[in-house]
């Protein structure tokens, strides 16, 4: 995929006074009760701005997935608040919450979560189906999303017949089919070899450069380093927030990936 002036894009999206798409304050999550209580997240505060790419990095069990689930409104915090697009999520119930997730979020999972007996096309248009988009329109949008991940020719194939990398690309197509504001990716390269992983990385950052906010949960330092910002979680707390010279590093990484492709 062609990368159009990443430097310019990254300057544009760091424009000041932008309004956070996700704002987390004093967020805690405790599992279990009393003696068995386990604090998965402890007083987390962070803001994510539109167009940013953010890595939530930590070891297995650090609480990074829990944080992503809370930000994606898949789970409810024990205390603290999550604001999405300026709306306090705890005030959102049922229909509105489902609509928000359906319209503004995209999800890429490590284990793909595809319905293996359905066709690739069916898998990609699932969010639109849930969002009551008409049959004709959702097919059009799904094919467009598949075109972006370069799998348009596999639309009619059964999902089960794809390779791991192709599956993850289908997942990306599914995640972007609703043209989301925020894309959550949970270990997107975790199950892939490094070559295929790089293709996925290219795709994700390509979308990011077109304006989609990207939140990647990973334990992979190299992947995290490609993001604008790294939020390191240890034992449920943010220990270190760092900003990389993202554009430079990313561009290098992409170039290397392209070389390997050749």
């Amino acid at each position: 995929m062609k990368k159009a002036s990443p430097r310019a894009a990254s300057t544009a999206k760091k424009a000041p006074a932008s309004f956070p798409v996700i704002e987390v304050s004093h967020l805690s999550k405790t599992y279990g009760k009393r003696t068995t209580a386990f604090k998965a997240l402890d007083n987390i505060n962070l803001k994510i701005f539109p167009g940013e790419s953010v890595a939530i990095i930590g070891k297995s069990g650090s609480g990074k997935s829990t944080l992503m689930h809370l930000m994606a409104l898949l789970d409810k915090p024990t205390s603290g608040t999550v604001k999405v697009l300026g709306i306090n999520a705890s005030k959102l119930k049922g229909k509105k919450l489902n609509r928000l997730r359906n319209k503004y979020f995209g999800f890429v999972f490590q284990q793909f979560f595809m319905n293996s007996n359905d066709t690739v096309l069916e898998n990609v248009l699932l969010p639109l189906k849930i969002g009551k988009v008409s049959r004709f329109k959702r097919k059009k949008l799904a094919l467009k999303a598949l075109d972006i991940v370069d799998l348009e020719n596999k639309a009619k194939n059964k999902a089960t017949n794809l390779s791991g990398g192709q599956k993850q690309r289908v997942c990306i197509a599914r995640a972007i089919v609703n043209n989301p504001k925020i894309l959550f990716a949970d270990e997107p390269t975790g199950n892939l070899d490094s070559g295929t992983g790089k293709k996925i990385i290219d795709l994700l950052f390509g979308l990011n450069q077109k304006g989609t906010t990207l939140i990647i949960v990973t334990h992979d330092e190299d992947l995290a380093a490609l993001c604008d910002r790294q939020i390191r979680i240890v034992d449920g707390q943010v220990v270190n927030e760092s900003k990389q010279k993202a554009g430079y590093i990313r561009r290098t990484a992409i170039k290397e990936g392209q070389k390997e492709d050749r």
Binding site: G94, F113, L126, P127
Partner: peptide
């Protein structure tokens, strides 16, 4: 189970 979880994550309501 997984499919149900996915559909819920993608915004499908309990009622549906």
């Amino acid at each position: 189970t997984r499919e149900i979880g996915l559909m819920k994550a993608l915004g499908m309501s309990r009622a549906k």
